[in-house]
C-alpha cells in the first residue's frame, strides 16, 4: 500500500483539467462549456492545495485556492448573465450557431 503523494493529486488534477478542456471544446451548450471552465478552475485549485501540502510554501496555496473559489463564483455569476443575454439575442445557447466573430 503506497501512501498517497503529490503525484496522485497531480494526476487527479490533470484528469480533471482534461475533462474540463474536453467539456469546453466539445459541448454544444454554453452552460456545459461554463461547467468545463469550473472543472479547470477546480483542477488548478487541487494543484495549489497539493503543492501547499507537499511543498514548503506555508499557507499561500490555500489562500490562493480560496481566492480562486471566490473568483469562480463571481465568474459563474457574470458568465451566466452573459449566457442569458446570448439567449436573449440569439434565442439559442448553442455555441456552434453563435459565430458572429467570423464577420
Amino acid at each position: 500500500m503506497t501512501t498517497i503523494g503529490l503525484q496522485h493529486y497531480l494526476v487527479v488534477s490533470s484528469i480533471l483539467f482534461s475533462l474540463g478542456l474536453f467539456g469546453i471544446v466539445t459541448r454544444k451548450n454554453a452552460v456545459m462549456v461554463l461547467m468545463g471552465i469550473e472543472l479547470i478552475l477546480n483542477s488548478a485549485n487541487i494543484n495549489f492545495i497539493a503543492f501547499a501540502r507537499f511543498g514548503n510554501f506555508g499557507f499561500d496555496g490555500q489562500l490562493i485556492a480560496l481566492f480562486v473559489i471566490i473568483l469562480a463564483a463571481a465568474e459563474a455569476a457574470v458568465a451566466l448573465a452573459i449566457v442569458l443575454n446570448i439567449y436573449k439575442n440569439f434565442s439559442t445557447v448553442n455555441v456552434d450557431e453563435i459565430d458572429k466573430l467570423k464577420e
Binding site: L21, I24, V25, T26, I98, K100, L101
Partner: peptide
Amino acid sequence: LQTGKVQAYVVLVV
C-alpha cells in the same frame, strides 16, 4: 481558420 466559433479557437489555442 476563422470560423467564428469560440470552441474552434480554444482547440487552436490548446
